[in-house]
Amino acid sequence: MTVLAQSQASKVRPWKLVLGGIVVTMLAVLAWGLTRDPSYIPSQLVGRSVPAFALPELNGKGTVAADELRGTPLVINFWASWCVSCRAEHALLTGFGREVATRDDVRIVGINYRDAPAAAARFQDELGAFSYRSGQDPSGRTGIDFGVYGLPETFFIDRDGIVMARHVGPLTEAALKHNLSLIGVTR
């Protein structure tokens, strides 16, 4: 009896170890996967030139165009009245917009994405007007050019027109400061 027990205990099955190792590794990878946001899409635009756009301004006067914005570090914020988390960053953006108006080393524009001017106006009536211009992108085509998938999204473009960073979700003071530093703007 003791001899039998010993022979069973000493039987090491290498394939069992290998299989066990693979299963444990896979479980670890899958567990790590659960901590990630499945809807997050990495930006294809970072490191590339900002897509060309020329959009009618939300107030009906003039155009917001990529060409006229060249030469100065630029922040582009995609927003919409239907976007709930855009409300969270609104105060920060309007505050930053007022600050930008006083300096000439950075600019900011909004792009009103898949929205109607009337709804956008109500949004601003409720939360306060933006302190900078917004272009209208009702079809979302400009958004597609930027690879936009979930609002709000904010792009940081350097003076040469290269997209240096994209922030998905409501902007925070820290994220704004960090991303501005990537386009050579100190705040």
Partner: peptide, 9 residues
């Protein structure tokens, strides 16, 4: 065209 904008996703 779409791969350019959104990648493999």
């Amino acid at each position: 065209y779409f791969h350019d904008r959104y990648g493999d996703y």
